[in-house]
Design a binder for these strands. Structure first.
Lengths: 233, 233
DNA sequence: TGTACATCAGTGAACGCGCGTTCACTGATGTAC
DNA sequence: TGTACATCAGTGAACGCGCGTTCACTGATGTAC
């Protein structure tokens, strides 16, 4: 597709807006994200930004999608290095990629997995796809592991009221893991977000843990065990 | 201590400010918390609020402390109903109290356990005490359970770099649980926050789980197992 | 290849708004004698 | 018990600031013939 100079300039400006927006996220947070401030950094009059972005909420949505994509790419990149067949190893690589990205981009991580932004609701049709990339990759790992008989999950009872929802997830994701594995996956995912948030958001207190990387490794081992990954060979 | 009318009025106004502040948290979030808006609802001129609160950050700190206290009270109340000696049951009661309080006060929960408020840092000397009430109660449960030989935690390896920090925690909290239990406690605590945040912050997606209470029960069972609580008798 | 018209990025002014914080003040409440 | 003074809650005006969004506009870029 041949691009006119005008189209290239537009794409460039669009990228600049997202880059500047993310920088502002770091300093002021999502609630204070301001089109005027973005325009200022872009070297342009405030109204000019409206050529690129419908309004403030639209800019937030762009940042959400961009953030999910960057995180998804990071996890994909990590998994592309993973040894085939070592499912526990794959899980750990993905989990480490999540933490590394969150620590590198704490403000964007907060936008995606922290407190909701008051008055803003991400439009499902634009964010659901990018927003579920990581969890889909994770469940994919469990799916293959389960098929290969590498998931030593002893029988756990799953509440009956969850069955329908779990079946829906199975259909949407095209996986065949049993309820117990799927429900444990939801547990591990939420727990993993909790561990990362605790560190990124400073929930442990200022100086409680010096080597938070080691703590995360310890936490991941427990999570990997709980979903039935056998120890790495 | 006899109170003059003026002192009573002051205490009353102070309570009102906190109550109004928390209501504003719900609608606008912490980042947009405004002294002027509080003054408006209080029926008073903006500058009058400065008789009660040094500045905007000070009001935030009041809300943080008030939130931690309310949550601490809720957990304490739940645990006062717990059967003596049933440690798993105590853990589950505390965990349910946390979720119930978070769902009832999502905005305050977000202030305590969600994304940090940009530009605000809670002063340690005022928030550390109230902020660690819940985790201290939880570790207390593990401590007693361990002393009673009710903690079936098979040997797990704890990274050596964590030992010093864990020893510091043991001293500060006056408990005697081994490293493995304490590190698992940190894991369970972060995971529990993650499960509650996932629900309160809407991280699962709009309609993924209908019975989130059942999901939480399932998640808690996994967490209780992972720290070695035996099934309730 | 040259011209006429359409598209569109960016300007500049304006709208009405809310914010935190300060200051000198009034008048009611509390306290010491 | 009564008076003089100190304390302090609340007023009202002002400061300088940033915000989202609209509108009519200019002038460069792109396109159809």
């Amino acid at each position: 597709m041949p691009q006119t100079p005008r189209q290239r300039a537009r794409a460039q400006t669009m990228d600049d807006i997202i880059r500047i927006g993310r920088a502002h996220l770091v300093e002021n947070g999502a609630a204070a994200l301001s089109l005027r401030a973005v325009a200022r950094d872009l070297g342009v009059v405030p109204s000019a930004v409206y050529r690129y972005v419908a309004n403030r909420d639209d800019l937030l949505t762009l940042l959400v999608v961009d953030g999910f994509d960057e995180l998804g790419d990071a996890v994909d990149a990590a998994l592309s290095q993973a040894p085939v067949g070592d499912f526990r190893g794959q899980f750990l690589l993905a989990a480490h990629a999540l933490r590394a990205w969150a620590l590198a981009s704490p403000a964007t991580y907060a936008l995606l997995y922290g407190s909701p932004v008051p008055g803003y609701r991400a439009p499902d049709e634009r964010t659901t796809g990018p927003g579920t990339r990581v969890v889909r990759r994770l469940i994919g790992i469990w799916d293959v592991a389960h098929h290969d008989g590498q998931l030593a999950l002893h029988e756990v009872e799953v509440p009956a009221t969850l069955s329908d929802d779990l079946e829906t997830i199975r259909l949407e994701l095209g996986v065949r893991v049993p309820d117990a594995v799927l429900a444990r996956a939801a547990t591990v995912w939420a727990a993993m977000i909790g561990c990362v948030s605790a560190e990124v958001f400073g929930l442990y207190g200022s100086d409680t843990f010096a080597d938070t990387g080691a703590l995360y490794d310890f936490q991941l081992a427990a999570l990997a065990d709980s979903v039935g990954f056998t120890s790495s060979r």
